[in-house]
Design a protein around this nucleic acid. Sequence first.
DNA 1: ACCTGAACACCGTTCAAGT
DNA 2: ACCTGAACACCGTTCAAGT
Lengths: 226, 226
Amino acid sequence: MTNKPTRTVVSRRARPAKEPLSKELIVETALGLVKSEGSSGLSMRKIAKALDTGPSSLYVYVTNQQELSAYVLDAGLAEVTFSSSDSGTWQSRLLDVLDSYLMVLFDAPGIAELALTTIPVGHNSLGITEYMLQQLNEAGVGATSAAWGIDLLTLYVSSVAFEQTSRNQVGTTLQAVKASYQSLDAKRYPLLMGLREEMTSADGKERFRWGLEVILQGILQRKNEV
Amino acid sequence: MTNKPTRTVVSRRARPAKEPLSKELIVETALGLVKSEGSSGLSMRKIAKALDTGPSSLYVYVTNQQELSAYVLDAGLAEVTFSSSDSGTWQSRLLDVLDSYLMVLFDAPGIAELALTTIPVGHNSLGITEYMLQQLNEAGVGATSAAWGIDLLTLYVSSVAFEQTSRNQVGTTLQAVKASYQSLDAKRYPLLMGLREEMTSADGKERFRWGLEVILQGILQRKNEV
DNA sequence: ACCTGAACACCGTTCAAGT
DNA sequence: ACCTGAACACCGTTCAAGT
């Protein structure tokens, strides 16, 4: 009676043998969801479902959603590329990382929001920060100015990406904004009226570059003053 | 039998006579909740409860939460103060509004998040933008530079406020960040290591001013270039 | 040590039904 | 025209119980 009959346990193998959970697997799955669904993909329940388990299982590897968000952000930032430290000028290197940063935030729409709301503490974001500090260091920018400047630059990139991607997501909203600008009271807001185009335009690259250069010039001018 | 007996309808008057709902009342109530509870106070259900009704009642006056958020943001910005157009220089006036802006976002913690995630379209935010445009106009800054510059400046203020207030809210997180910076690998991140203090410091006013001036100088230098 | 089901206390939004 | 109850389809997190 104790011999094993041909009891096909097929049910458990509907999909490839289930890997055991791990922090890495959870983070990777979450990142995938964020890429495909945007920030709403970062839900404990959706991640659990994608891993074919219950939400409570995740709490063995991650203390809460906030912590998981920080990991996911850092995993996403792994794709930011650096040019090697001897190609071009410090300035071109700096602009290049920031460009790459923007691209990464751009095609994983949910990550931009994370970058803005989550304090980044993983190795990838630390690596990026260190690299940028090197460039400003080379430019002769003092310690405090460099530290605050980097914050300013990354903040700028994140928010540009966020504005852009969140508008794409909503769709209806942008129209609403345009409509409300359309019907502006010319007497109350004459200047705004004249700048309707400029305020609404999301002409991407050009505008992004402009902001970057504005900040950078500002930083260089106050190199050592705090 | 049709005479009214002394039937005390006391129950409906436990609180002062219930005002009928209105968009204004809803927005004002929501703003109150955001001020006292932070961004989590901006919940349809909480607002409804505060108004002693059900959540579905709100949808008569407001199409959805997103739209309500925009109204609440604008109502919050009503407290931003302007100095009159002939006191001091354009620069001092500009810095003053931005200062006031920061203060407002500061003591209504949830609003900073709204400012960052909600596209502002109400009369108050339009008024602030118009006022700032006036100042840059006076400074001789070209149209496009002015438009983009204002965006940059307000973005900066919002994100400084958000970073600050969200850290206060969480509390635990900041310690975690400090801890992770504490245990930084000196070989991997030598520069970051040396700047630990500067990166973590949230010394408010001074840092805020620095960023403002950096951006402003950058804008002035590219007055008319796009 | 790891995983799970079930529960708790929440969400936003819709819609048929009432006044 | 306005308001409501009840339902739908979600949330994050906890915890006793299982292996």
